[in-house]
Amino acid sequence: MADAALEVWGDPIEHSLSPALHAAAYRQLGWDWTYGRRRVTEAAFPGELAASAPALRGLSLTMPLKAAAFAAAATRDERAALTGAVNTLLLTGAAPRGFNTDVGGIVRSLAEEGVDGVEDARIVGAGATATSALVALAELGARRVEVAARRPAAVTPLQVLGDRLGITVLPVPLTADPFAPVPLTIATLPGGAPLEPLTADALATGGGLLLDVVYGHWPTALSDAWERVGGRAVSGAGMLLHQAVLQIRIFRSGDPAEPLPDETAVVAVMRRALVGG
């Protein structure tokens, strides 16, 4: 494909693994594309976008820019519309097109763990990533989702979204003990977030498979707890990988559902890049 420049923006951004993932994919595909990173604050985002968009094919957005990217997008896919978050901007048309690939990243990551459907689940944390987790659970058929949060009032927006999705969202205090058994737990707490060992153990007991979206601070307090009770925990590395695959699909064709050429090989080289191989 023709030369193209793409970037990932966020604040902070130095830790991002996206450049390695995208570069590996572009080499495998034989594309002469570049993918850089830039520290952009939320306040600076509109000006940076206006100045840079003409030279870029697309952008990946990480925290704290997903809401700002949502506002900047002229059109949004369904996942972005539901979550209010855009992590991918396609800049090849007359106006930016916004997408949320985090939801698909969660769904595809869970599929690799043998989870292609679930009725009940628990989300730990009620921040922005919890919204993508809830939409992903809806796509997997969930009808009842507990949200364990330090402030149960923070769960209210997720309850509103749950009503739209046909899911009963139940807030529970993060200090609850015992928690009801569930087959799947998705943890959305920031990496390094403190958690009392007793609380972590209570969540792990009967918590099913743990998908902890953290990938840069591993193991986490929760993954350690899952190990103590003999449970199974996976990091957010798979989510990161698969949301990047969906981004590259978008950057290529504008359609996250259109597979890449020889996508199996592309995913394989990206996975190796993720672990530094």
Score class of each variant (00 low, 15 high):
A126C: 06
L140P: 04
D201I: 09
V267R: 12
L91G: 03
A268L: 15
G166I: 10
L90R: 00
I186M: 01
G216H: 15
A237L: 15
L82K: 10
G127N: 08
P12R: 06
P19Q: 13
P256G: 01
A268F: 04
L134Q: 05
A244S: 15
P219I: 04
L158C: 08
L222I: 02
T131F: 01
G166Q: 12
A85H: 13
A4T: 13
V269D: 00
D255N: 11
F251E: 08
E7C: 13
A136D: 09
F251R: 12
L198E: 15
R271Q: 12
Q159E: 15
G277E: 15
E119G: 14
G117W: 03
A51R: 14
T129C: 13
P173K: 01
A133R: 03
Q243W: 02
L110W: 11
L241G: 08
L59V: 07
L29P: 05
P173I: 03
G162I: 00
M239Y: 06
T199A: 12
A244L: 04
L29E: 06
R249P: 09
D32F: 08
T220R: 10
T129K: 07
P54I: 02
M270H: 14
L65N: 00
L6Q: 06
L21S: 04
D77H: 10
V145N: 01
I167C: 09
G276S: 12
P181Q: 07
N100K: 08
I13K: 09
P152F: 09
L89V: 11
L65E: 05
T88W: 03
D212T: 01
P173M: 02
Y26D: 07
V234S: 11
G84F: 02
A128V: 08
M1L: 15
F99Q: 10
D177F: 11
R272G: 15
V8N: 07
P19C: 05
A69L: 02
L65K: 00
V169L: 11
A176T: 13
V266D: 00
P46C: 01
L110R: 07
P178R: 08
M1Y: 10
L21G: 05
A73W: 03
A176N: 08
S60Y: 09
E78N: 14
E78P: 06
T264I: 12
G47S: 12
T101K: 02
T168F: 10
T199W: 06
R249T: 04
S109R: 04
Q28W: 09
G36H: 06
A5Y: 11
T101R: 04
A237M: 09
R79C: 13
A225I: 08
T168Y: 07
P181N: 02
G105C: 13
A121T: 01
P194K: 00
A180T: 14
T175N: 05
P178C: 07
A273N: 13
R228V: 10
